[in-house]
Amino acid sequence: MVEATKRTSPYPLWFFLPAAVIYGVLFLVPTATSFWYSLTRWDLTTAEFIGLENFRQFFSEPFLVQGLINTLIYAVMTSGLKTIFGLLLAVLLTSNIIARGFLRTVVFFPVLVSTIGIGIAFTVMMHPTRGIINVALEAIGIDGPGWLTDPALALFSVALVDLWKGVGLATLIFIAGLAAISPDYYEASRIDGATRMQQFRRITLPLVRPATVTVVTLSLIGGLRSFDLIWAMTRGGPGFSSDVVASVIYKQYQAGFYGLSTAGNVILFALIAVIMVPLTIMFNRREIEQ
């Protein structure tokens, strides 16, 4: 019996080639170029190789280091709050409550609104004397703080606005995760006498873990590269108290320090990679073990 000869087709290779070319042109080439220019002192016409001088300068300037620290604080804070409140809202909005569909729309609506528009609106609302928030607090006898003018509060105030805007997406992801849990688990636990809190701890939390991983990953990456909301509300101020790496990069570029701003881009890229790659490996390993 003669074995049929196997025919190999070049189709799979040609199928992936256009995507590979686009990926290389739009990602690999700009990334490699950024690494090169971070080692130079350059303007729009010339470039002088200076090695790691831009990186030494970045880490020797206190306000640049402060931007790096603020980035980590902001990312961890917004990611944690979105995960916690997103899960709680999802549990609430999947229960038997009145106007559940309407409340889901209300929670998700801020996700659809322009970030710059939200930043401008909350900047007006958080004005220390004429903002609606402090005016309302004053009406009940509370002296409202300078939400965006106090260096100790500015970054946290922006983080709360980021939570208000982004928790809707986290809630939607958690609702999808909760919908995938079979009601049989809860029915069996009720027969065994489990309380709602025990059901939440022993059933909901473990089975909603894939959604939790997605929310943590997306919100952490978004927090690390956040720029538009912070720039719209504080422009990194007062002083450098709410500066993050992205706003520092933009300020250095505006000032004409193109090499230093490119080095900041590389540092931000490395920061995201150092945090997200091990975190993703850890999440994937736990999923395999389970």
Rank of each mutant, 00 (worst) to 15 (best):
L68I: 13
L103V: 13
P110C: 14
V245N: 04
A121V: 12
V277P: 05
A99P: 02
L155P: 04
S79M: 13
E3S: 11
Y258M: 13
V107D: 13
L160K: 05
L26D: 02
Y253I: 00
T83P: 07
A255D: 11
I98F: 10
G80K: 02
S9I: 03
T78F: 02
L137Q: 11
L89H: 11
E48T: 15
G80L: 13
G223W: 06
I118M: 11
R41G: 03
F49N: 04
R201E: 12
F27N: 10
F35R: 06
I98G: 06
F257K: 10
T123H: 09
I73W: 12
R235L: 01
S189P: 05
L87C: 08
T83V: 15
P10R: 01
G166S: 15
R104Q: 15
I120C: 04
G80H: 05
G86R: 12
I203R: 08
P10K: 01
G168S: 13
I116R: 01
A263D: 08
R41F: 05
N265I: 09
T33F: 13
Q254R: 13
N96S: 10
Q252K: 10
V266H: 08
K251S: 02
M1R: 10
G223K: 01
G146S: 11
V274P: 00
G223F: 09
T33R: 14
P183N: 02
T280A: 14
M125F: 14
S219G: 06
V25H: 07
R235W: 00
P206S: 07
I98H: 07
P30A: 10
P145V: 03
G51A: 13
I133G: 07
G259D: 00
Y185D: 05
G236M: 07
G86Q: 13
L169D: 09
G236Q: 04
L87T: 10
F156E: 09
P62A: 11
P10Q: 00
R7C: 02
F85D: 00
Y258A: 05
V107T: 15
N284H: 13
L26Y: 09
